[in-house]
Every structure is written in structure tokens, then in C-alpha cells.
Write a protein that binds this DNA or RNA. Structure first.
Lengths: 152, 152
DNA sequence: GCGATTTTGTTTTACATCGAACAGTTCTGC
DNA sequence: GCAGAACTGTTCGATGTAAAACAAAATCGC
């Protein structure tokens, strides 16, 4: 009778099921895709919202610093900035201190787009965490931060 | 003095910094890449270890069920199975009940490779979570599972 | 039974991402 | 000062991933 019992639930991962690495990846894929697909009419900004939020918090910082913040290789970052720049959301300005670096800035339009998307993100965050206690959410944030620290 | 204060820490994400969505993504990227790069001499298996663990726990299940378990589109899954099959880790066998489906099985070699990599994964898990209490780890697992449930 | 719908695995095509190599600039040690 | 090392942004080639369209097989509604 193999291959027959079609229960409706997702297949578990056996030994890997109780590991942070597995659940972390699965949760992230679902969260990221869900958020992106809910905002298909907003262009490329939703996919790179984290990145844009870093830029907003640190205007004028060099590309490499921002790429490092979101764990992106510098080479990948170039294409992404080209697109966001073509969409009128960000701007590269040559640094006055170091002729190698480009400072990255949000345009006024980028500022409003990011502000609007951050509200969407907060709504999405509420959906993702529905049914969790405030303590659990705080614990989740703490654990994720500790993972990031340990892996950096 | 913009673009000058080069502190050594990672740039924060401003408003997004305290959101699960942002930290979840960053942690997952770091965890996944770190694990993969530590095992460059093990071919493609480390990248697809989660997937292989699902197959091991549910031998003979159709491709679509397994793809769904790890949130992969069926079309992406085909190429991956082709590679894992060429590496001798898995095997497709036509189902006797439904002539559309291929049941997926680990080969004997696949079985030993996955068993070995799962030990590596447990070691990596310990490194990721070093400095965390058992309660925090359990809470992290619970939160991640709840996220997966809410997003499914 | 039988046509319409759904499901499964696949191909095709477009796009996203990464590593390696490169030129221009700055920094370091002396 | 100056040669070598390190850093920044970029290009290029290779690989990974995803959406859409397709054929074969099973299921549903009647």
C-alpha cells in the first residue's frame, strides 16, 4: 500500500524535523514568497525591502557595507542596485572622501515606497505570528538574533 | 562626515530590524551558506540534505508530495532529482498504483551519505545554537513551527 | 460508460544569483 | 616617497531557480 495514504498535511522531514536548520529554511522560504506574491503589483521593491530598509536607516553608506549587512556578495548587489536605480527608488552618489565608493541613498520616491511597504510588512508580520504570545514572539526574535551573531 | 564611521559590526536594518521576517531571512541565508561551504567536498548532497531527509523518512512517495514538503515547485524539483540520481543518491521507480507517478527512494549509498551528513548537521546545529539555553532552543523550534503552520 | 477536469512529471524559457577575474583607488610598511 | 597589499565597484561566465505550456494518466460528474 506504499504511496497511497494521502493525508492532507505536509510530509515531515524525519530526523531533520526537530532541527532549527530545517525549520528555519522552510519558514523563511514560505515567509519570503508569501510576502512577495501578495505584492506582485509593487515591482521589485518587496523582494528587496530588507535591503531598502538598511539603506533608509544608513543613508550614504558604501555599497559594500550595505551588501554585507544583508549577506549579499558585492557582485550580486550591483545588478540589484541597477534595477532599483532604474525604478527610481535609490541613487548612487560618488563619495567625496573616497573616490572608489558610491554612497547609496533613497530617492524621495523611494522613501515613500519603502514607508508604505513597511506598513504592509508589519501587517504580514502580524499574520505570520498570529496565535503566538508576546513572550513567544520576543523569544523568537532573541533566538534569531543569537543565530545571526553565532553565524557572523 | 558621512560614510566615515566604520564600526566593525553589521549595519542594522532600522525599522525592519525588530521584525521576524528580516531576521528570519538573514539567519537562514547565513546558516544555509555556512553549512554548504563547510562541506564543499561532499558534492550536492549538503544543499539538498533537508530534501533527502524527507525522502528517507517517506520512501516511495511521489515527487510532487516531496517537492511540496520542502516548498519547491515541481518544475525545479525535476532538475534536482536528475542530479541526485546521477550522483547515485536517489532512484525513481514508477508506481504500480498510478502510472503518472514516480516513487522516490534513497539508494543504499544515498542512505549512508545522508546518515553521515545528518551527523554533520547535528554538529552544525550545536554551533549555531551555542550559548543558548535549552528552553530558548525549544522556544525557537516552537516559534518556527508555528510560523510554518501559519504560512501553509 | 464517457467527456471534462485535475493531477503528475517534464520541457522550455526567462530570470536571479554567485564566484572569479579586473581596473581604479587607497592604505601599509618601510 | 614608493612598491606591494588591500579594498571598491564592476563585468563576465556558469549555475540555480521559477513560471508557463505540454502530454499522459487518473478522477469526477453525470
Amino acid at each position: 500500500m506504499a504511496g497511497r495514504d494521502d493525508t492532507q498535511t505536509r510530509l515531515d522531514a524525519g530526523e531533520a524535523e526537530d532541527t532549527i536548520g530545517y525549520k528555519l529554511r522552510l519558514a523563511q522560504i514560505l515567509a519570503f514568497r508569501g510576502f512577495e506574491q501578495r505584492l506582485t503589483d509593487h515591482g521589485r521593491a518587496p523582494r528587496y525591502l530588507g535591503l531598502l530598509s538598511v539603506i533608509r536607516a544608513h543613508p550614504g553608506k558604501p555599497q559594500s557595507r550595505i551588501a554585507e549587512a544583508v549577506a549579499l556578495p558585492r557582485s550580486s548587489f550591483v545588478t540589484i542596485l541597477d534595477q532599483l536605480s532604474a525604478d527610481g527608488l535609490i541613487e548612487r552618489r560618488p563619495s567625496t572622501f573616497d573616490r572608489r565608493v558610491n554612497g547609496i541613498w533613497l530617492t524621495p520616491e523611494g522613501e515613500t515606497v519603502v514607508a508604505g511597504l513597511m506598513q504592509e510588512a508589519q501587517r504580514y508580520e502580524a499574520e505570520m505570528t498570529r496565535g503566538m504570545s508576546a513572550e513567544d514572539i520576543a523569544c523568537g526574535l532573541r533566538v534569531l538574533q543569537k543565530l545571526i551573531d553565532n553565524l557572523s
